[in-house]
């Protein structure tokens, strides 16, 4: 399993290269700052599935897990390589 720093960096790259938005910091609130809108959110889910090989079911996860790069990192790291379903 990748370490938190590597996951965080990969996420920052997704935001920059795929979603075309710059996130001020890893703990910046992506919703409150308006960095992430609904279109970008769906695109983010797609990119996470592509890059990290996870399946994200919104029925079973909390939107709060997507509030910052830091939180997404923790969520992805929580997979611990055992399950690919979030």
């Amino acid at each position: 399993m990748q370490d938190l720093q590597t996951i965080g960096n990969e996420l920052a790259e997704i935001f920059s290269l795929k979603l075309h938005v710059e996130v001020p910091s890893y703990d910046a609130d992506l919703f409150e700052t308006g960095v992430l809108d609904s279109l970008q959110f769906v695109e983010l889910l797609f990119q996470l599935e592509q890059q990290f090989g996870v399946h994200i079911s919104l029925d079973e996860t909390d939107l709060e897990n997507f509030r910052s790069i830091e939180r997404i990192t923790v969520m992805l790291a929580g997979q611990n390589g055992n399950s690919k379903r979030i």
Binding site: L19, H20, D37, L39, Q40, E43
Partner: peptide
């Protein structure tokens, strides 16, 4: 032109 100002659009 994006509806909500988002750079992620079908057009792009």
């Amino acid at each position: 032109k994006p509806r909500y100002g988002s750079p992620v659009t079908l057009w792009n």
